[in-house]
Simulated assay, not measured.
Amino acid sequence: MSNYTTEPTTLADASVSATSRLLQVSGLTKSFDNSSTPIFSDVSFSIFASQSVALIGSNGAGKSTLLRCCLRLIEPDAGSIVLDGETIDKKSGRHLSKARNKVGFVFQKHCLVPRLSALSNVLHGNLAYSQGPRNWLQGLAKQDARERAMDCLKQVGLAHLANKRCDQLSGGQSQRVAVARALMQQPSILFADEPTASLDPQSAQEIMELFKGLVKNQGLTLFFVSHNIEHALKYADRVLGLQERKLSLDSATHTQSLQSLRAFYG
Rank of each mutant, 00 (worst) to 15 (best):
G219R: 04
F211L: 02
L183W: 03
E194A: 08
A178H: 00
Q202R: 14
G139W: 09
N163T: 05
V156H: 01
F191T: 04
Q185R: 13
R148W: 10
E194I: 06
V215W: 05
P195F: 04
T196S: 13
M184K: 13
A141W: 02
A145K: 11
E206K: 13
A159W: 11
A197W: 03
H160E: 15
L158M: 15
A178Y: 00
V215C: 14
D151Y: 12
L220N: 06
Q168L: 13
G157T: 14
N163W: 03
A178M: 05
A192R: 04
L169I: 12
G139V: 08
L169G: 01
K164D: 01
L140T: 01
Q173N: 09
F211I: 03
D167W: 10
A182T: 13
L190E: 03
G213K: 14
V177Y: 02
Q143P: 01
S188T: 04
D167E: 11
Q185W: 03
A162T: 09
L199G: 08
A182Q: 09
K154G: 15
G219A: 06
G171Y: 14
Q186C: 04
N217H: 11
A178L: 05
A162C: 10
G172R: 03
R146H: 10
Q173G: 01
L222G: 14
H160K: 13
M184T: 10
G157V: 13
S170G: 11
R146F: 05
Q185V: 00
Q168T: 06
T196F: 08
K142Y: 10
Q202L: 12
Q218E: 14
A149M: 05
Q202G: 12
S198H: 09
I189Y: 01
R165M: 07
E209L: 14
A141F: 01
R146S: 13
R181F: 08
S198L: 07
L220C: 11
R181A: 07
S188F: 00
N163F: 09
Q173K: 07
V177A: 03
